[in-house]
Design a protein around this nucleic acid. Sequence first.
RNA 1: GCGGGCGUGGCGGAAUGGUAGACGCCGGGGACUUAAAAUCCCCUGAGCCUUGCUCGUGCGGGUUCGAGUCCCGCCGCCCGCACCA
Length: 842
Amino acid sequence: MTDSRFATRFNPGQADSRWQQAWDEARCFEADSTSAKPKSFILEMFPYPSGRIHIGHVRNYTMGDVLARYHKMRGREVLHPMGWDAFGMPAENAAMEKGVHPAGWTYDNIATMKRQLKQLGFALDWSREIATCDPTYYGHEQALFLALYEAGLVYRRESAVNWDPVDMTVLANEQVVDGRGWRSGALVEKRKLNQWFLKITQFADDLLEGLGTLDGWPQKVRTMQENWIGKSQGLQFRFDLSDGGTMEVYSTRPDTIFGASFVAVAADHPIAQGVAEGNPEAQAFIEKCREGGTTAAELETAEKLGFDTGITAKHPFTGADLPVFIANFVLMDYGTGAVMAVPGHDQRDFEFATKYGLPIIRVIAANPGDAEVPLREAETGDGVLVHSDFLDGMTVEEAKAAIIARAEEGSWGEGKTVWRLRDWGVSRQRYWGTPIPFIHCDACGVVPVPAYQLPVTLPEDVDFSIPGNPLERHPTWKQVDCPKCGAAARRETDTLDTFVNSSWYFLRFASQPGDKAFDKAEVAQWMPVQQYIGGIEHAILHLLYARFWTRALAHVGLLDVKEPFASLFTQGMVTHETYSRKEGPREVFFSPAEIDRSGEGAKLKADGQPVEIGKVIKMSKSKKNVVDPEDIIAQYGADAVRWFMLSDSPPERDLPWSEAGIEGCGRFVQRLWRLFGQLDESADGEDKALARRTHQTIAAVAEDIEALAFNKAVARIYELTGATEKAAPSADRNAAIRALLVLVSPMMPHLAEEGWEALGQSGLIAEAAWPEVDPALLVEDEVTIAVQVKGKLRDTLTAPKGASKETLEAMALASEKVQRAIDGAEIRKVIVVPDRLVNIVA
RNA sequence: GCGGGCGUGGCGGAAUGGUAGACGCCGGGGACUUAAAAUCCCCUGAGCCUUGCUCGUGCGGGUUCGAGUCCCGCCGCCCGCACCA
């Protein structure tokens, strides 16, 4: 024994807090922006301070922590910060329900969660901690907002908005899911309000193109953003109508114009509205369209319905009078809310035409000879134009270009790019958010708050006894003098969407001067974020907004980077089986702590009777299948919990929590501790095989961590541990033990520090270097060769590395098992893969 | 409907076209102990005529000396989007 301390078990209850304190005192993890070392910015999505840390946070931050500690060991200057996405509805809900102040509630939660994060020993630079609800944060945000306003990227207009009647606020399009508020779940209403907007559409093309450069992002997320931005190119043109008016339509398939057999408008289209006046039948139809649900099932089964307005539209080439329908499948908020319908080559139009007996004309055919083949369904594929006058014989692409050119010549239409992406409405009628820094003056209009008056801080004396915006009804807060003319004016009472807060927080982490949001040169030291880790649920909202803000800030000259996150990793959820019992009509759930899972099935501890074991699903309070991180840290120690988070499941997949699993991790912590205690300074002599294994493991674990394949790194550490335990004492075994100590230090930092100290090493292992690998030891000198006969394994043999093909073939043929398998048959061919296998084809 | 991903032991999962099931969990057997905990050792895909053989990575084909891996066609599950003209 090197140290009597190894005689007792490793005690996380004492060691964890001791080393956490040591790191704090040594300020190990404070990032130095002026360091000459290469820099790494490792970032996990910052949490909303909802109350307590949940297991998903633990998994997320453990992954980032391993990376951060690893990069530090590899000699990089690492920025690994933490903060709080602290504005938002739950704080106001708490204020309404419990009568507490949102600020008090939020800061209490921050204190709790910070304490919990500290218990996990994360290598975080707490000196850069930020809370977005702090005026020193949101004041700078107001300045940035004004800078974007100056550059014309912020505007205000009256618009129909998504109004959440439960939260009593406006939601962005991105926050409406299946017609319901993403948070409240309430059916969203349309309202007209004066709203502040950010001009994200100005960057639509750039945001789309930028996706192509994001090699470090999951393809899935890139595709989701691409679909959300939704670029399409086509022709917008006008029909002359029989009632003397004109109507704009948009089509991405102008090449099929000779196949148009009717025109359709949305129920909310002005033409539909016009027809409905004095026509009860039309009015009734429009009402019916509005009733239609928006859920997946409803849309899939929704029948195509139309109402003939009696108006006709003149075809620009044939002069034919096309009937104008109000149709339930046309959307008002895409394109112009009106379409030319080509039943032959659009499935919706086909269904509609079939139902209402309208002509179905083929204008595209796979081959010119197929022009008269009848259409059984809409054909949307490629081909050549037929029945299309001057377009006949052209390809789809050629025809599109020809029609757009013709329309532009004749001034009845123009080529146009349409986006699904809309400008981002950021006004929220809430208290707990960043006040929008504007003043409304009767004489001067909308006036930006001058820089010297920033930050515009939230009043503290607010009343949550009734719903609505407390800022709006505050007795004095909004009364202010106009900065321009000095007359009595009114402060803007809307606050910014909380997604604005999270759109630039990484910049504030990188640089936090007192007089401005960030310093451009200092930010350049750290950005872009080398590795960003978070949940897939932010694939569109947060990640698109952050990409937009970074571009917008670059556009106004405040930044030099366009893409904030070089690599993105979306981690899986932590899941757990559920326990329940049917009690009458309802299902009652029990928490894992209430369950005895030791024998067959599961029993409720309280009454010893069985409960039903349900599916393994994401941990959620309603299903009670949650484990509290603080409880398990208290029971097993931070290192066991961290190790569990990294073991078994690949990090992008779901991780099923299990009691047996965490116990196994706890055992492994002790097993390593015992092994560290076996370091024997008096031992000498070589163990070449173990030395090889050690160096191979060092190299492989490094590779795995860099690839975020933590589960594989864990498996390799288990293997080296097993091999080292079995090896006889030697200098190489001591080296293996020391290597293991360092290899596990990013994952189990407390155990590693404790072992490092007990073995008499100086300083902190957190500051130590990653072990060097001897390349000579990475290659084996003997290899195992698989010997196959007709592709089936018959024998294995050991050969010197690099043995010649002839040698290997001879060795294989000498094998008795091989000879028996060949059974005297003629050998037709022998395939030799050096250092790997011999395959004899007989 | 469109797009993406995934199907491997009892479970989580390994496997640059080259020995399928590494590693962990569960389970079984044993050692130590008065006993327990802790620890250690062995076994653990299925089957059989058990020095060994056969089968086996959702199903059916194909390419190849050789396929979990590549190609074609199905089936199932998961995720995202969705009447986007």
